[in-house]
C-alpha cells in the first residue's frame, strides 16, 4: 500500500458517503443516474468474487470490498424504492447495451487467463472505466448539477486519478510491475473526467453553480 492508493481509496469511500448524504438530506436522488449506480453494483459484484475463493489479502481489503458491494446495493434500494418518485428516468437515457456489449467483448478477448473469474475481473475493470458515462451524459443533457452532486463526482474523479501515480510508484518500487489491463482502463476512466473537472475548478470551487455553457 502506498499513499496514492490509500488516499485514492479514501476518496472513493468519501464519494459514496457524499452521495448517501446528498440523497438522505435532500430526500431525493434527482440528478443521479441510476444506470451508473447499477453499473457500479455490477462492477463490484463481478470484481470481488475473490472474497469467496479464499484469496485473502488483508482485513482492510476485505472490509472495503464488502463495503463497496453493500453500499452500492443500498444506493440502488434508496433510488429504486425509498426515493423512487424523485428518480426521473426520462433524462437518464444512455443506452446500457452500448456499455455492456463492448466491455463484455473486451473482457473475453483481453484477460489474464481465460477462466470464469478472470474474465469477470477484466469485465469489471472495463466496465468501471465507462460506468460513469450515463451520469456524465445526464449532466450534459440537463446542463447543470447540484453542488453536492459535483462534489460526489469530484471525489470519484480524484479516486481514479490517484491510481495513476500509484501504478507509476509500484512500477518503480516493485521491479517493473505493471497491470496493463487496469492501467489502460484507468487512464481512459480518468480521461472521462477531464471536462467535468474543468467546470468543477473554474466554477464550483469559485463558489458558482455547476452550469455547462449552452
Amino acid at each position: 500500500m502506498n499513499l496514492f492508493r490509500l488516499v485514492a481509496d479514501l476518496s472513493h469511500l468519501a464519494s459514496i458517503f457524499i452521495l448517501l448524504h446528498k440523497i438522505q438530506t435532500t430526500r431525493s436522488c434527482r440528478g443521479i443516474s441510476i444506470k451508473t449506480q447499477l453499473l457500479y453494483v455490477l462492477v463490484f459484484v463481478t470484481r470481488y468474487l475473490d472474497l469467496f475463493t479464499g484469496d485473502f489479502v488483508s482485513i482492510y481489503n476485505s472490509v472495503m470490498k464488502l463495503f463497496f458491494i453493500g453500499s452500492s446495493c443500498y444506493i440502488i434500494y434508496l433510488m429504486r424504492i425509498k426515493y423512487k418518485p424523485t428518480n426521473d428516468p426520462s433524462i437518464d437515457t444512455f443506452r446500457l447495451e452500448y456499455i455492456l456489449g463492448p466491455t463484455a467483448v473486451l473482457a473475453l478477448i483481453f484477460n489474464y487467463k481465460f477462466t470464469f473469474l478472470e474474465v469477470l475481473w477484466a469485465f469489471s475493470i472495463y466496465l468501471e472505466a465507462v460506468a460513469i458515462l450515463p451520469q456524465l451524459f445526464m449532466l450534459q443533457r440537463t446542463g447543470e448539477a447540484e453542488t453536492i452532486t459535483t462534489h460526489y463526482l469530484a471525489a470519484l474523479g480524484i479516486y481514479r486519478g490517484l491510481y495513476i501515480p500509484n501504478w507509476i510508484y509500484r512500477y518503480f518500487t516493485e521491479g517493473g510491475a505493471i497491470d496493463p489491463i487496469a492501467v489502460v482502463a484507468g487512464i481512459v476512466q480518468t480521461a472521462l473526467y477531464v471536462d467535468f473537472f474543468y467546470v468543477y475548478f473554474t466554477k464550483v470551487l469559485q463558489g458558482q453553480k455547476f452550469e455547462l455553457p449552452a
Binding site: 484469496d55 470490498k65 505493471i178 487496469a182
Partner: peptide
Amino acid sequence: LVSGKPKDEL
C-alpha cells in the same frame, strides 16, 4: 517487467 494483476488493489 512483470506484467500481471496486482491482487491487492481494489
